[in-house]
């Protein structure tokens, strides 16, 4: 059995009175990219938000490095070494690119240590360093959002829909960057674009109506057209 950095066990999450997650389980092996697949509204984003403590689960366990983190505050969860790149980027529009990166430091000097690596992955950001985040294009904002999660030493990255609304050339660049990230940390990815997901990830978990009915190796899923058709509606 492969060691897992993250084990989500049968979590149930409510938003208001709505029972959104009705028993989701996800395992992220160390050093791998695991992708959550499923239709819109299936509960993929809520799964990531539950792991981050933003919508804490009412039941179930979330083990990070073997310790249950369910119910902890989001800042305490992040400090354990979990980076979050939310849907729609959530970069700070009024802050410059440099400030967007600087705010992510957990220890003094984090940014200085990581700057070369970040600018090697995303050379555009170096050129735009003094511009407000709101002035960046969608693709540049996504790069900044991913770069921000790289500033501290995160061991797990949760990345939500990185390719959403981006041009193919930008998606290629982001995919290359995410592949590089997986060399130093594990990644749990939400991705609607099955082609992108199947090229990036080694593991998959299907999320369907707030549950996780199927999981396994992505290569097996790619071969299983019926399963793909059933849960994702793509052939």
């Amino acid at each position: 059995m492969t060691d897992s950095i993250l084990e989500v066990r049968d979590i149930h999450t409510f938003i208001g009175q709505f029972h959104i997650l009705e028993g989701v389980s996800v395992s992220v092996p160390v050093g791998s990219i695991t992708v959550l697949l499923g239709r819109n509204g299936a509960g993929k984003t809520t799964t990531l938000r539950s792991i981050m403590g933003l919508t804490p689960p009412a039941r179930g366990q979330i083990l990070f490095d073997g310790k249950n983190i369910a119910g902890k505050h989001p800042h305490a969860i992040a400090q354990l070494g979990i980076g979050y790149v939310p849907e729609h980027r959530a970069i700070f529009r009024e802050l410059t690119v440099h400030e967007n990166l600087r705010i992510a430091e957990r220890k003094r000097g984090d940014l200085a240590r990581k700057a070369d690596f970040i600018f090697e992955l995303f050379p555009d950001l170096k050129r735009l360093i003094d511009l407000p985040g709101g002035n960046l294009s969608g693709g540049q904002q996504q790069m900044l959002a991913v770069a921000r999660a790289l500033v501290p030493d995160n061991r797990l990255l949760l990345i939500d829909e990185p390719s959403e609304g981006l041009a193919p050339v930008i998606i290629e660049q982001l995919m290359a960057a995410i592949s590089r990230l997986a060399e130093s940390s594990s990644v749990l990815l939400v991705e609607q674009n099955f082609r992108v997901a199947s090229r990036l990830a080694q593991q998959y978990v299907i999320i369907e109506e707030g549950q996780s009915p199927a999981a396994g190796k992505i290569d097996a899923l790619v071969q299983d057209a019926a399963l793909v058709q059933r849960y994702l509606g793509v052939a």
Binding site: P74, H75, A78, A90, F92, I103, A104, R106
Partner: peptide, 10 residues
Amino acid sequence: EDREMVQSLG
């Protein structure tokens, strides 16, 4: 701008 994101950064 975004309190939730600030928390998510630790």
